[in-house]
């Protein structure tokens, strides 16, 4: 397959205090088989050779499971390809001559560290507020000592696939973190181990989410649409139900 030439408009910001600006770059001979991050690697190699500062972006697993590689591509978190993280997005979805705009997640609770890298510790604090279960630590329990219904296990597992990437916040017109928080609350709340703290968990996590400065949910559904794991909106209803019954 033939290679393509692209124009990138990338957010560059030296540090948290810098105002930042969009900078335009040309990238030539991009293979359609490259991932989006590999395409940025190629550009960064050239920037380094030219004595420029490479573009900072987060990444780790590059296989769609760590949730680090968040960036907004042409106005859509992780790009327009559904259920795909940026690292799993391939350049074959773009055309020769395209201009691609790349920006960091935009949220007050996700301050920019540098270029495309944002600080997502607000998510960690939401987890710390209640995203855990209390278990007596000791030797591993016997298998099947605690029966879990098949449909509950499946739904809990689906919710547990949330990788904490933050795309839901980035896409939400209200800057709400409801989908992330709801995924965690659903995951734990569906399992027997999660029952003792079910109500207090919902209350504590929702309150922490609000304290972090995320916006309020108006059920637009933009979050689910961009979520690389397809976490459903019904988790948010469940979070609201647990939250309301906690009060």
């Amino acid at each position: 397959m033939s290679t393509m030439n692209l124009t990138l408009r990338v957010w560059r910001q030296k540090g948290p205090e810098d105002k930042g600006r969009m900078v335009t770059y040309k990238v030539v001979d991009v293979s359609p088989d490259m991932s989006f991050l590999e395409m940025l690697d190629v550009l960064n190699d050239r920037l380094i050779v030219e004595g420029d500062e490479p573009i900072a972006f987060d990444h780790d697993c590059r296989e769609g499971i760590c949730g680090m590689c968040g960036m907004v591509i042409n106005g859509v978190p992780h790009g327009e390809q559904r259920a795909t993280t940026t690292c799993q997005l391939h350049m074959r979805h773009f055309n020769d001559g395209d201009t691609i705009t790349i920006e960091p997640w935009r949220a007050a609770a996700f301050p920019v560290v540098k270029d495309l890298v944002v600080d997502r510790t607000s998510f960690d604090r939401i987890i710390q507020a209640g995203g855990f279960i209390s278990v007596p630590a000791g030797s591993a329990p016997d298998a099947h000592s605690l029966p879990v219904q098949k449909d509950a296990a499946d739904a809990a597992f689906d919710a547990a696939t949330c990788i904490g990437c933050g795309a839901c916040v980035a896409a939400c017109p209200n800057g709400s973190a409801s989908l992330f928080t709801a995924a965690k609350i659903t995951h734990l709340g569906l399992l027997p181990q999660g029952q003792p703290e079910r109500d207090s968990r919902a209350k504590a996590m929702v309150e922490q989410m609000d304290a972090e400065g995320f916006g309020g949910c108006t059920n637009t559904g933009e979050c689910t649409a961009v979520c690389p794991k397809g976490i459903p909106l019904s988790t948010i209803a469940r979070m609201n139900r647990d939250y309301l019954s906690a009060k």
């Binding site: 327009e80 935009r106 949220a107 209200n174 649409a225």
Partner: peptide, 19 residues
């Protein structure tokens, strides 16, 4: 609240993905 939660807006034009 929504306005405060996203002080810096996106440069790219919004594309609604869902509703």
């Amino acid at each position: 609240r929504a306005n405060k939660a996203r002080p810096v807006k996106y440069a790219a034009k919004r594309k609604n993905q869902a509703s």
